[in-house]
Design a protein around this nucleic acid. Sequence first.
DNA 1: GAAACGTGGAA
DNA 2: TTTCCAAGTTT
Length: 350
Amino acid sequence: MKNWLSFLTEWYIENQRDLPWRKSQHPYNVWVSEVILQQTRVDQALNYYHNFIQTFPDIYSLAAASVDDVLRVWKGLGYYRRALNMHETANVIVSQHNGIFPKTYNEIIKLRGVGKYTAAAIASISFNEKVYVIDGNVHRIFSRFYAKAFSKNDKSLEQLVEADAQLATKYYSPGDVNQAMMEFGATICKPSEPLCSQCVVSTMCAAYKKHMISLFPIKTDKKQKKTLYYHYFFVHKNNYCYLYQRTDNNIWKNLYEFPLIVHLKDTTIPLQKIPFLASLNIKNIYKYKTIRHILSHRIIVATLYNIEVDELPEYGNFLIVSVQNIKQFPISKLMDKLIDNLYFHLNNHN
DNA sequence: GAAACGTGGAA
DNA sequence: TTTCCAAGTTT
């Protein structure tokens, strides 16, 4: 007997979008697309997937690349840990798996950066294994279909998905069933204003029948974002400036930026107390610009200072790079915005 | 298990 | 201008 996920899969087979990663079921391609799509919209993923596959067409080219090269391709996509984990995983697969991508869910989930969702996606799409994904879409469409508010990591949701999807895979491949649930959630059973008139299972949907569609998903109260004050220093002489690579195990790890002081409060910074500034002979110093940069978990108020110096000595791990070359480095969007302001400023004062 | 971890698009 | 995210994983 065909169940609702069978009908969704039939709908998916007929109506799926033409997306580049659906042209290949090779685990490398599926892995790359699934990691890029983590917490990322399809529209934004498209170009990055194309560039990534173009630059690193297989596991060997990715493993052989430098961290800088991988981050350059990932630049602007966010959650950069994904790129570092993929690079590390590529090297593990080459050195420990003879370059062969692992073929089962239990092996795949051992890879760095691959959790339950991604392991199930790869195992089902590339290897036809009957393991099922639970992402934001699946959580939402099951909440509506059963008119039940599943909590995060809800065991009862896992059991329902498992049971319903198993039935559907009597008729369709697990990869199609999984992608059907997500495609349906992304395009029909959307978070807001779902297209119930186009839904092929609306007559079976508990929330629809009870007029409770708008109650799902349950809204949770968000945490207040902490505000941080970043002071970036454009220290330059004759078109050269300082740049350094972040190495701490937190945000933007391994990306490059101007020397930086972080403050918890919006206070004037004592410039003479900043070590690398104290040793410099400063000809001119002033603020270029202050901009707000919004992250998922905090607000950064970033100020860029212009500091023109007589000499630009070697200092610690600072690089001395030409101002025009900064954008060749993997940098955050915040740095990108600051540099746009800087270039605009320089072009209008020369 | 809560918090960290980015970004850009839609309402 | 705010708010809310979008095909999650790690610590």
